[in-house]
């Protein structure tokens, strides 16, 4: 019961503080802009002084370029949004004292954390659906219709990819006593997780592979990357459980 009350408050907070709006604007903007950027790249090059010299080097844009552009933009800006929206989510409440106000009520600490995670997960889901649909529309208009199911799976993979980082940064925010410390720990964790794929043979097991899998599905329906999916889900669960254990032992 108290979980739903807390989830309601988190969703209301995202709306009333305009954070949901900011998230939606960023993701939808890049969702809409990506196929346009892919299509209009040659024209944009013509507008740059001397750009015409490079036109011969740029191949005619295809639907694959639209996918690549979409995945690059969304994974980068989505990650930044995930970081900014999550780093203070627990640390700020501890720092300001609002955590005391609610944790002294019959709200289990696990429910307190899970409500925050679920609210962000729902926010990302909604924004990604809108960004994905917008991008699908423009891609269809400019390049022809991609496989709708594969397109939605790509967005689902992007969503899971963001959730890994949301869970990781939420853990950092739980460990830290202040927002600044949470940001420091979060940046460290993101850098480590981002650098791991450069180790030989490790990349296919890491969350980044989810995005590659989703992109590959658009051209190759038989593409699979189950280990990355399992490890990503495991990471999310592990981060949430660790955050709960840590918060449960903390004196607020």
């Amino acid at each position: 019961m108290s979980f739903y009350a807390s989830l309601r408050k988190e969703v209301l907070e995202l709306v009333r503080t305009h954070r949901l709006l900011v998230m939606a604007v960023i993701l939808i903007f890049f969702g809409l802009a990506s196929p346009l950027m892919a299509k209009l790249l040659p024209q944009m090059m013509r507008l740059i002084p001397g750009g015409e010299d490079f036109l011969s080097l740029i191949p005619t844009p295809t639907i694959a370029d639209a996918f690549t552009q979409y995945v690059k933009n969304l994974s980068l800006f989505g990650l930044i949004v995930a970081f900014l929206m999550t780093m203070g989510i627990v640390a700020q409440e501890k720092e300001r004292g609002t955590a005391v106000l609610v944790l002294v009520k019959p709200l289990p600490r696990a429910a307190f954390l899970l409500a925050k995670f679920v609210a962000l997960a729902l926010a990302f889901l909604g924004c990604l659906v809108l960004a994905g649909l917008g991008s699908y529309y423009y891609t269809t208009l400019l390049f022809g219709a991609p496989d709708f199911f594969a397109w939605m799976v790509l967005n689902l993979m992007l969503w899971l990819y963001f959730l890994v980082y949301v869970a990781l940064i939420l853990l950092a925010s739980t460990i830290a006593k202040s927002q600044a410390a949470a940001a420091g720990i979060g940046i460290g964790a993101v850098v480590i997780l981002g650098a791991l794929p450069s180790l030989p043979g490790l990349g296919k097991y890491l969350p980044g592979q989810l995005v590659a899998w989703g992109t590959a599905l658009l051209t190759d329906p038989s593409a699979r990357s189950w280990p990355a999916l399992g490890i990503s889900l495991g990471l999310i669960v592990a981060c949430l459980v660790a955050a709960w254990i840590i918060l449960d032992r903390q004196e607020i």
């Binding site: 300001r96 004292g97 005391v100 106000l101």
Partner: peptide, 13 residues
Amino acid sequence: IGYLPEEPAFYQW
């Protein structure tokens, strides 16, 4: 129970 901290903090929004 009910609890009022020394400097109660609220969600500003």
